[in-house]
């Protein structure tokens, strides 16, 4: 279980998280939505201590995240993370990208590791790219490798920080399919996303963050069909309008409307 209790985070004078409480149970898929700068990424990054919180506490399976480097390292063993910019290691092959951390952390015997890598690459549909280098792959492929790399550490929880935001529209689907498959396998996941239809389909619970606080949470059907909070309504309306205009072939670029 991941628990956030009254979490506060400041960047200088700017208060980014203003007392966030959240519990993610095992097997649950939680989607976090909210406007840019609302604190959703900061919250996610706090969970695995990429951001040090200024108040409150974060518990991973009842143990406090923080303290000594050793404690942090232990807690991170259970947490896999996927980034917006993939962050693959460009100097290592796909195989070595996946193998590096399990090897250095003595996670598996050598043969078992090789088997795991093949299984993971099959799962994300990229076994044939095993010996390629990341710059030789498309964004979607890189993100699928990044997911496989995180899974190779056998984490209990997966954190996704806008996993499709840096991708070209036609590559988003292949990454979402992999994440969906993980959800079907019962993986516990926290996903920060702007893909509303994806959040609606996959999440057990949707959290709306704005101004550093959770302003609304509930099952996707309720959040998307009958949001209670005014700001949630406005936010969803603006996103859905944009999605609609994309569907209709209307794009707004720097104030110029182009009709196709």
């Amino acid at each position: 279980m991941i628990e956030l209790k009254n979490v506060h985070k400041n960047f200088g004078k700017l208060e980014v998280l203003k007392g966030v409480d959240l519990t993610v149970k095992e097997g649950e898929v939680v989607a976090i939505i909210g406007p840019s700068g609302s604190g959703k990424s900061t919250m996610l990054r706090s969970i695995n201590h990429l951001e040090t919180i200024d108040g409150g506490e974060i518990l991973i399976d009842g143990k406090v995240m923080g303290g000594s480097a050793k404690q942090i390292k232990e807690a991170r063993l259970n947490l896999g993370m996927v980034f917006q910019q993939f962050n693959l290691f460009p100097h290592l092959t796909v195989h070595d990208n996946i193998a590096l951390a399990p090897k250095l952390n003595h996670r598996f015997e050598k043969e078992e590791l090789e088997k795991t890598i093949d299984e993971l690459l099959t799962k994300v549909g990229l076994l044939d790219k095993k010996n390629n280098y990341p710059p030789q792959l498309s964004g979607g492929q890189q993100q699928r490798i990044a997911i496989a790399r995180a899974l190779a550490m056998k984490p209990k929880y997966m954190l996704f920080d806008e996993p499709t935001s840096a991708l070209d529209p036609e590559l988003i689907g292949e990454v979402l399919r992999v994440i969906r498959q993980l959800a079907d396998d019962g993986m516990t996941m926290v996903i920060v996303t702007h893909e509303m239809s994806f959040a609606r389909d996959i999440a057990d619970r949707v959290i709306m963050i704005d101004g550093g606080v959770i302003i609304e949470e509930g099952p996707p059907r309720q959040i998307f069909s009958s949001p209670k909070n005014e700001r949630t309504k406005t936010f969803l309306k603006s996103i859905l309008e944009r999605e609609e205009s994309v569907k209709e072939g209307l794009f707004t670029t720097a104030g110029i409307e182009i009709e196709e």
Partner: peptide, 22 residues
């Protein structure tokens, strides 16, 4: 990129491992 450090830390590597391997 700082993302390389973050990826290393999120994969449970320590400072020395990230510095020398990544």
């Amino acid at each position: 990129s700082v993302g390389q450090w973050e990826a290393g830390y999120s994969l449970d590597l320590n400072y020395m491992q990230i510095m020398f391997r990544i």
